[in-house]
Design a protein around this nucleic acid. Structure first.
Lengths: 233, 233
DNA sequence: TTCCGAAATTGCGTTTGCGCAACGTTGCGA
DNA sequence: TCGCAACGTTGCGCAAACGCAATTTCGGAA
């Protein structure tokens, strides 16, 4: 678990400030795992027995209601901690995490948490900052859902995905994993129909190009205007 | 700062598990303050120089956008920590906190945070659990905003307030601080008009009684059905 | 006690976005 | 290569909720 991973995680932000020997200590109780596309890393309501660091790939964090309706809480990009229930005093996972593409993760048993946070304040601070950022983002989403129209919300969601995982292609900047209309709808509290209509409209105006589970933004600036409520662009 | 407050905070949940002498240590750097109704405890964007414990009263936590639209993030009831930016690695307050009624608080300088959390793991754990709960609640609100209709959301908001601060009166259970239609609208992402219409309708059905900045619930069970999307009740 | 302003009510027209349904498309596995 | 299932598109009607405006009610300050 030691040398092999040190390079893998050398530039993972959460380990900034740790010495090499400390890194080894942190990694000692960890194990690596691969998760295939569409497989779950953990399930909502399940006992929180491990926490994770996403090394490569992207995760979709999904919450499902009793009635089976679902909402995408967020996407997790490589380099982030996931499933850190103990940081917030929980012993079950509040959501499910599903691999959006094939993923590589590190995982630790929860039992390692008290020790890690106690011995590495930098690690603890990083973890709590992550929680804080998620609270902030979630709060921002509440504001958006409360005040913005569907068109602005969808534009924003697309822009966020592009910012997080955008990859340059000949069509513009493409979201680097498969995203369906339904996925975007689940992120913005609307229906796949409305998302489809919006994407079609934007495509005809030359702001995006999209296909089956694929979205590229060709004119980010104009889409940004839309996300800010410009009547036209 | 010692004996006087010990009784005040004897049953504050966040201090559970602390010995008396530890309590004194915790309280040593603290100071008490009173905040009059409608005055701010701290302001969004301001430097986070102190954190607070609400001993008595109720706070409204408000976020305001650049365009001046506002959303009520949450109400804080007595016994909760507020303004704990450092717990999540921030140095400015992400929102403003306004006294909904006259309030009594304890406040600590931020500089006390590292010491307190290091010396009193129970305190730290409580603080992080608070953050976790808020993340959870905020997440739940995203789900609600994404999936539920306005009527259900408003019913839910009223029920939440009643649950948090309900006080028995002859009219049923009353929310224990002034809440305007606009406040409810800011909590649910709708307009004061719609809230007014809903409250009127519910009142004519005998589920609530309400007046100027005052709401009582007379039939919580039926209102609960509404909040769960029952067509009628 | 009176008066003023904030809060609340309510009617009406309009818009947004949903729901349904029918139809087209694409890519993968047999 | 074919067939099918998942994904996407689009037209149409409708309901929910907004926005505006006119009016009323209430409570506190002068």
């Amino acid at each position: 678990m030691a040398k092999l991973n040190r390079s893998l995680i050398a530039d993972v932000e959460i380990f900034n400030g740790l010495q090499d020997e400390d890194l080894d200590t942190v990694l000692e109780p960890a194990s690596a795992l691969r998760v295939a596309k569409d497989a779950a890393v953990f399930e909502q309501g399940g006992a929180a027995e491990r926490f994770f660091l996403l090394l490569d790939g992207a995760l979709r964090v999904v919450q499902t209601t009793r009635e089976g309706q679902q909402v995408i809480a967020r996407y997790i990009a490589a380099g982030s901690l996931v499933g850190i229930a103990p940081a917030i005093g929980r012993d079950t996972y509040p959501a499910s995490a599903v691999a959006a593409v094939d993923c590589v993760l590190l995982s630790w048993p929860m039992s390692a948490w008290p020790d890690l946070t106690a011995r590495f304040p930098v690690f603890a601070a990083n973890a709590y900052r992550t929680v804080g950022q998620r609270l902030q983002e979630t709060q921002d989403r509440v504001i958006e859902l409360s005040l913005a129209q569907v068109e602005q919300r969808v534009a924003n969601a697309v822009l966020r995905l592009v910012r997080q995982t955008g990859r340059k292609t000949e069509d513009g900047i493409e979201i680097d994993f498969p995203v369906s209309r339904q996925d975007i709808a689940d992120m913005t509290g609307t229906t796949l129909h409305t998302v489809s209509r919006l994407l079609s409209a934007w495509e005809s105006q030359g702001m995006v190009r999209s296909g089956r589970k694929r979205i590229s933004v060709t004119d980010p600036h104009r889409l940004m205007l839309v996300s800010q409520g410009a009547k036209d662009a």
